[in-house]
Every structure is written in structure tokens, then in C-alpha cells.
């Protein structure tokens, strides 16, 4: 009855910032990013991508408590670049990779359609006849 709405675990509150940067006072060129309403899906991927950059000395992430929907990402660089820039570049790089992958998937799926693999499925007919749409959409399932 008093439970907070479940979507609070993944939807930003009004006015809530998706990311909060805290610069580290004891470690040079380091910052901690608090990324809210996100989890390991983003955290681990970013960590790995940031770590792959040569200017980065340290990168790690943690989800401090499983019931608190945020994670902390700590980045230390060698001083030639700020942690913020590193994170931004990592995000951009990941988006590039993802869109490349998206294009490849699209290509692969179109090949499979042409080969007629889909038509041979055990369920046979397309059933409920939901094939009315297609205009403006570049893929169609079922």
C-alpha cells in the first residue's frame, strides 16, 4: 500500500539529473560519476569502454546497494584529459559501435528474410494477420 511506484527504479524524477560528477579530492585527475536510474547494463559496458582508452589509469564501477537504483563510476586519468571527457568519448564510441552493429543486424535479418528461413517455421502461417503496417517501418516481424 505504501510501496513507492516501481517505475521509480528506472525513470528519472522530474528535474532529476541523470548524472552527477564529484571530483576526487585525494586522487589527482579522478572523478566519481553517480549515474542514477541505471544499472549494470550501462555501468559495466562503460567501465569496459573507458578502461580501453590509453589515457585512463583506473576505471571501476559499483552498485552500492541493489535496492538503490544508481551506480558509481570512478575514473582516473593520466592528466592529459579530464575524466568527464573520457566518459563522454566512451559513450560516443559505444554509440558508434552500437549503430554499426545495428546496421549489421539489419543486413543479416534482411538476408534471412530473402532466404525464406522465416517462412519455414513450425508454426506455419502468420496467424493473427498483424501484417497491416509496414509503411515507414523498416522491419516487420512475424
Amino acid at each position: 500500500m505504501n510501496a513507492p511506484p516501481r517505475f521509480e527504479l528506472f525513470v528519472l524524477d522530474d528535474g532529476e539529473k541523470p548524472v552527477e560528477v564529484t571530483e576526487d579530492t585525494k586522487i589527482p585527475n579522478a572523478a566519481t560519476f553517480k549515474i542514477v536510474k541505471q544499472d549494470h547494463t550501462l555501468g559495466n559496458m562503460l567501465r569496459a569502454q573507458v578502461l580501453a582508452m590509453p589515457q585512463v589509469l583506473f576505471a571501476g564501477y559499483k552498485v552500492p546497494h541493489p535496492l538503490h537504483p544508481y551506480f558509481l563510476l570512478k575514473i582516473q586519468t593520466d592528466g592529459t584529459i579530464t575524466p568527464q571527457t573520457v566518459l563522454e568519448q566512451a559513450c560516443t564510441k559505444l554509440i558508434t559501435t552500437l549503430s554499426a552493429l545495428e546496421a549489421k543486424f539489419k543486413r543479416e535479418f534482411s538476408f534471412k528474410d530473402v532466404e525464406g528461413t522465416v517462412a519455414e517455421d513450425p508454426y506455419g502461417a502468420t496467424g493473427t494477420g498483424g501484417q497491416t503496417w509496414g509503411a515507414g517501418r523498416d522491419y516487420l516481424d512475424f
Partner: peptide, 27 residues
């Protein structure tokens, strides 16, 4: 959903997450 839509939406969703993060950093 069909498998194709699942994959394409999944990739799009990941990009959205990252894009929102970039926006948050640049805000």
C-alpha cells in the same frame, strides 16, 4: 515481439541510454 524487433529495439535502447548520459554530462 518478434526476434528482429527485440534485437533492433534492444540496440536502440542501449543507444538511448548512452545518449541520455552524454546529454546529462553536457547539460
Amino acid at each position: 515481439l518478434g526476434p528482429q524487433e527485440v534485437m533492433m529495439r534492444g540496440l536502440a535502447e542501449l543507444q538511448t541510454k548512452l545518449a541520455n548520459l552524454i546529454l546529462g554530462l553536457k547539460a
